[in-house]
Nucleic acid binder design. Structure first.
Lengths: 160, 160
DNA sequence: GGAGATTGTTATATACGATGACAATTCCGG
DNA sequence: CCGGAATTGTCATCGTATATAACAATCTCC
């Protein structure tokens, strides 16, 4: 453990561009593929917004969830993020290691920890949310504001 | 090597559901998060459509690209998919190992292999494309046909 | 009070893709 | 043409992010 700041290398640091002269065949008609390309684009946007902070999308989501639900357990955090308990714990370890989050014993359940943002965590998160939202708006500028809202609605509907 | 059919375990085999009583805070307003949730939903759809075939999304994309661009090199395949040459080679190894694709020497460049779908590959791919498209339509039935088209357009625009 | 579920924790396994090196081959400036 | 630079496939190795399985402590409920 005790890794250095962690270079935090994303899986893909380049956008998936359409190569001229290449036929994409059936992929052009499939939602799954477009979804993936769009997601890579947004991932790069996120990466630019959080450069050097060592914050990955799951870590970011975890911080946001903890802020919005003070005192929630690691198990619940994992359920919300759709990952296993063990993974949620690693996330919590990271947040605690950075002093962004504290684990406090819960009165109602001695098994579980309650996760709480520290002042430091709240400040960092606030700044980060703003940066991520700003970068996202820059990318989404290709869409109009109403198109952006429509996209959000359709994605939500699709995800169920 | 020579693994059995490969259980092909996806990273997430459960949808990311919204938990009642949990506040998602800033995530609700961010495209990146909705994009991810939608992508997990489509990934599960893909998984259902290809159950037991050992076909993953990158493998599927590779087959589609090879079919649409017979004779392309492994490097080009990697560039199209947005992965490194070494990864494209593993993909090609898998396809060749399953006798879905053949490597043929190219007349114009003795360094590169040309990738070509075999008859077997063509048949399997055709069936798979139909199954994936059908499952996708089932999921996208939550959207109307015009909404689906609109979503595809917005994603394309966003990915640039 | 006790059986069974839940929580946190740890160890272990696996999958994926990147990086960096290498030889063979091709490209290109002079 | 010739020789250095770039490209292609290949391989070995690494890092990251998951999952699974086991365990002790604790809670729930009958």
């Amino acid at each position: 453990m005790s890794k250095p700041p962690s270079p935090h290398r994303p899986r893909a640091l380049a956008p998936i561009e359409r190569l001229p002269g290449v036929d994409y065949g059936a992929l052009d008609e499939l939602l799954g593929y477009s979804l993936r390309r769009a997601q890579v684009a947004m991932f790069l946007s996120f990466h630019r917004a959080t450069r050097g902070l060592g914050i990955t999308p799951p870590r970011f989501s975890a911080l946001v969830i903890v802020r919005a639900n003070p005192g929630l357990s690691q198990s619940t955090l994992g359920a919300v993020l759709g990952i296993a308990r063990s993974g949620a714990m690693l996330l919590a370890d990271w947040m605690v290691g950075r002093r962004l989050v504290e684990r406090r014993r819960r009165a109602d359940d001695a098994r579980a920890w309650g996760l709480h943002l520290t002042r430091r965590g709240a400040e960092l998160l606030e700044k980060t949310v703003r940066a991520v939202a700003a970068e996202e708006r820059r990318v989404a500028a290709r869409l109009g504001a109403s198109e952006r809202r429509e996209l959000l609605r359709l994605l939500e509907k699709l995800a169920g």
